[in-house]
Computed example of a mutant assay.
Amino acid sequence: MIYTVTFNPSLDYVVQIENLTLGEVNRTSCEAIYPGGKGNNVSVVLANLGMKSRALGFIAGFTGDALEKMLTDFGCTTDFIRLKEGMTRINVKINASEESEINGQGPEITAEAIRELFEKLEQIQEGDILVLAGSIPNTLPEDIYERIMERLAERKIHIVVDATKDLLLNVLKYHPFLIKPNNHELEELFGVTLKQEKDIIVYARKLQEMGAVNVLISMAGDGALLLTEDGKVYRKMPPKGNVVNSVGAGDSMVAGFLTGYLNTNNYEKALQLGIAAGSASAFLSWLAGKDEIVKLLQQPPEEYGL
């Protein structure tokens, strides 16, 4: 089973505006509401690819009800903890000449709710996959990822971490199965500027030396690099297309990678499916379905277990 954890999920209100002018009334040309949060995005794309997962996290208020219903409608299994106060946040995603976001704060997560989450994590068994993705709301302890991974360290669970800065660096000692920084986040982690592929590989290897088992570096239009546990480096370029919305593309890459890995036990095919999924979502207004992803694969979908 794959489990995803989203500590601060959201309803994403996505609007298209031809020209955003501050200080004036702006009218949308189209709009939609989607379930949001990095872990939830991973669960949706997994469901689209025929993979089962269980979405964990915290919800509150009528917006939490709407979020859970949307995820269920998209084929996801949810096991959220309901908070007594506040409401699940609403994030506004503005697609204009440039992408802009206004993200809500979200409800306060109590110590009791954290204990309940740890009880749910006890369900995870050897061989399962746990995806920890996204930022930590300020009502949670900063070391929550570390506490989770320390608690599960002896379970032989494949843990995927998609986070930034110290949130990522501090968990490397627990040997996550996969981490997925992009090239800019890699620069930020080490305080360097990386202009050549060989330099990106050098610093990705440093993350392996610090404990990561596999390192997936997404590079937008330049594709992705995968450094695997057996010392190999795979590089794949993305398919051509027009980027419509980059929100969720990285989460889609994680879902595609996991699907490819679980179905084929082949890292190179996992990378290819990950890039196809990430690109397909980037070319759409929201997360890609199976048909859109399959269209971008370089080999028949049967080779990826689809």
Results as ranks from 00 to 15, higher is better:
Tyr3Ala: 04
Thr4Asn: 06
Val5Gly: 01
Ser10Asp: 02
Ser10Thr: 04
Tyr13Pro: 01
Val14His: 08
Val14Gly: 04
Val15Gly: 05
Ile17Met: 06
Asn19Phe: 08
Thr21Met: 10
Leu22Val: 14
Glu24Cys: 09
Val25Thr: 14
Val25Tyr: 12
Arg27Tyr: 12
Arg27Gly: 09
Ser29Trp: 06
Cys30Val: 13
Glu31Thr: 06
Ile33Glu: 01
Ile33Asn: 00
Pro35Ala: 09
Gly37Ala: 11
Gly37Tyr: 05
Gly37Phe: 09
Asn41Leu: 00
Ser43Tyr: 02
Ser43Gln: 03
Leu46Val: 01
Ala47Tyr: 03
Leu49Tyr: 02
Leu49Phe: 03
Ser53His: 00
Arg54Gly: 11
Leu56Asn: 09
Leu56Trp: 08
Ala66Met: 15
Leu67Gly: 03
Leu67Ile: 06
Lys69Glu: 15
Lys69Gly: 10
Lys69Phe: 11
Met70Gln: 09
Asp73Val: 10
Glu85Arg: 10
Met87Thr: 15
Asn95Glu: 07
Ala96Met: 04
Glu101Ile: 10
Glu101Phe: 10
Asn103Ala: 09
Gln105His: 12
Gln105Met: 11
Gly106Leu: 04
Pro107Ile: 07
Thr110Val: 06
Ile114Glu: 09
Glu116Trp: 06
Phe118Gly: 04
Leu121Asp: 01
Gln123Met: 14
Gln123Pro: 07
Ile124Trp: 01
Gln125Val: 09
Ile129Val: 15
Leu130Arg: 00
Val131Asp: 01
Gly134Arg: 00
Leu140Thr: 04
Pro141Phe: 03
Pro141Thr: 03
Glu142Gly: 15
Glu142Arg: 14
Asp143Met: 04
Ile144Val: 11
Ile148Met: 11
Met149Asn: 00
Glu150Gly: 12
Arg155Val: 08
Arg155Ala: 12
Lys156Glu: 13
Ile159Arg: 08
Val160Gln: 04
Val160Glu: 05
Thr164Phe: 10
Asp166Met: 12
Asn170Leu: 04
Pro176Ala: 04
Ile179Asp: 01
Lys180Asp: 07
Asn182His: 07
Leu186Glu: 05
Glu188Met: 13
Gln196Val: 13
Lys198Ala: 15
Lys198Arg: 15
Lys198Glu: 15
Ile201Pro: 05
Tyr203Gln: 06
Tyr203Met: 05
Met210Ile: 09
Met210His: 07
Val213Asp: 13
Asn214Pro: 06
Val215His: 01
Met219Gln: 13
Gly221Cys: 09
Asp222Asn: 15
Leu226Arg: 00
Thr228Lys: 07
Thr228Met: 08
Asp230Thr: 14
Gly231His: 06
Lys232Tyr: 13
Tyr234Gly: 09
Arg235Met: 10
Met237Asn: 12
Gly241Gln: 00
Gly241Ser: 00
Asn242Leu: 13
Val243Asn: 06
Val247His: 00
Gly248Asp: 00
Gly250Ile: 12
Asp251Arg: 01
Gly256Trp: 09
Leu258Ser: 11
Tyr261Phe: 15
Asn265Trp: 11
Asn266His: 10
Glu268Gly: 08
Leu271Lys: 02
Ile275Trp: 01
Gly278Cys: 00
Ser281Gly: 07
Ser281Phe: 05
Ala282Phe: 05
Ser285Val: 15
Ser285Phe: 13
Trp286Ile: 02
Trp286Phe: 13
Lys290Ala: 10
Asp291Ile: 11
Glu292Asp: 15
Lys295Met: 11
Leu297Ile: 13
Gln299Gly: 06
Glu303Cys: 09
Glu303His: 12
Tyr304Asp: 08
